[in-house]
């Protein structure tokens, strides 16, 4: 029984594309327009991310509405990837992935652009949309 790498094996010759959910369609529409969108609960006004159909913060199962983020926030945590997951990433490594706390009080996992030595918890960042094979929002360090 010699098993082949299964469905979980990532394609090694191209960058992965996001597996979009219906809940997130407005988010990806926003990305195409270089806008960063998130959701707010119509009842408790809490910020919600990743997108869903019902507010998970309050008990009422209230609907959510979309809002524009200013795209500003600070680094909550980060790690610089030294051993990338697949050959396609090798040319980009080392690259830094982190969690950003947006000013609207929600958290996003993203890439943090800039020299690894300059990246630190608490540093201010802003959203950018680098022109790459797969269009994704990233964050760059605010100038000191």
């Amino acid at each position: 029984m010699e098993l082949e790498p299964g469905e979980d094996a990532p394609a090694t010759n191209r960058f992965p594309v996001p597996r979009r959910t219906l809940d997130a369609e407005p988010y990806w529409h926003g990305v195409r327009e270089r806008r960063l969108l998130f959701q707010r609960c119509q009842a408790c006004r809490g910020a919600v991310f990743p997108p869903r159909s019902v507010c998970p913060l309050c008990e009422g199962g209230h609907p959510l509405e979309w809002a524009d983020s200013r795209g500003r926030g600070e680094i909550y945590s980060f790690s610089t990837v030294m051993r990338p997951p697949a050959p396609v990433w090798r040319a980009r490594a080392p690259y830094t992935l982190g969690i950003v706390h947006l000013d609207e009080d929600y958290y996003m996992f993203s890439e943090i652009l800039g020299p690894p030595a300059a990246i630190a918890i608490g540093r201010r960042v802003r959203a950018v949309f680098p022109e790459r094979e797969v269009l994704l929002p990233a964050f760059e360090l605010d100038q000191p």
């Binding site: 960058f15 992965p16 594309v17 996001p18 597996r19 979009r20 959910t21 997130a24 990743p50 909550y76 945590s77 980060f78 790690s79 990837v81 051993r83 990338p84 997951p85 697949a86 990433w89 980009r92 690259y95 992935l97 982190g98 969690i99 996003m108 996992f109 993203s110 890439e111 918890i121 797969v134 994704l136």
Partner: peptide
């Protein structure tokens, strides 16, 4: 698969977020 994997994380890079904090 939608909001993390497209950025190229490895399992150590995800767990490293916890380590860094």
């Amino acid at each position: 698969p939608q909001f993390e994997y497209p950025y190229g994380p490895t399992i150590p890079a995800l767990y490293a977020q916890i380590a860094c904090r």
